[in-house]
Write a protein that binds this DNA or RNA. Sequence first.
DNA 1: ACCTGAACACCGTTCAAGT
DNA 2: ACCTGAACACCGTTCAAGT
Lengths: 181, 181
Amino acid sequence: MARIETTTTDRLSRERILEAASGIVEQDGLESLSMRRLAQELDVWPMSVYRYFRDKAELVDAIVDRATAEIGKSEGAGGPWKERLRSLLGETRSTLAEQPPEFRARFAAPELSPAAVRVTEAGLGALRDAGFSREAAASGWRGLLAYTIGFASLKEGDGEGFDHGLGLLLDGLEQERAAGS
Amino acid sequence: MARIETTTTDRLSRERILEAASGIVEQDGLESLSMRRLAQELDVWPMSVYRYFRDKAELVDAIVDRATAEIGKSEGAGGPWKERLRSLLGETRSTLAEQPPEFRARFAAPELSPAAVRVTEAGLGALRDAGFSREAAASGWRGLLAYTIGFASLKEGDGEGFDHGLGLLLDGLEQERAAGS
DNA sequence: ACCTGAACACCGTTCAAGT
DNA sequence: ACCTGAACACCGTTCAAGT
């Protein structure tokens, strides 16, 4: 049996840094994330992290992207449009609800988050497929996204009541489309 | 002409501290607010602020309360219920839109903010007056508040489209009430 | 008793000094 | 050229020393 070199700490990498950083945020909140504590948890010099991330802001950006990376990945183009939107926004709500408020705020400025861009494209696609004009789709999506982000912010309850209000919005949009307004 | 004692700095007070702190947040954002900078701006020793606020968290609480203090103050009990809610939520949205995301997050945990409590009471009152059951009013309010907070979070545009989606929710709730569900 | 300000235990980041 | 770690310019807050 050859002696095995057990370097308990693997080589540093963006992925390993992000994993540790996400763990800190999940456990103790964003305000507990410091470059120094992160480095300590990785058993690395504080400055080593700066090889992989320009500064703390870039690191936080990457954490948010990672936390929201799965949203909207599984959405196909098939099925009734209301079901597609229910599924897309339900997934968005439940994922955002787990994140700190600062993370949710990024979804409201879609250009800052790849996931927000993807979700918006999927949502607009569903509305366009359903026959909404470009303007109606954009306006409708704005309301649906606002409702979803807001509900994710509500501290009390899980997603209770989310589907109900979402149904009101979707039915209302459907009625408007039928009326051709 | 008697010599006038021009102590350029008035006596320190909660109000004076809050004014200066709010100014810093408005100008440079919440992350720029530090006890040390605040004291410097007030031309006071850093520790003097601690006479009026236990710690920074209590100070920030007070800033949020101050920033949202006017919401829902002018709402009477008269007029059509949908108009009452439009006015209440419109005011809520425009006020929250000016605040940093961390401030908005407090509205989602109403027990933390006197203003959120007041707005929720006013909103529930309007729904109850309109004939909604306690359960229907609570559920409906949850959706309306979520929509409003979410819309306030959207970075692009002012309140454009807010009334439209709000109308869909209100009309939907009205239809449900009529159907007696 | 009150006020002061030094001190403690932190930050993010720069940069000179070492290899 | 790379890596290190001392140093800089900050934090919030405690607390001993002065009045």
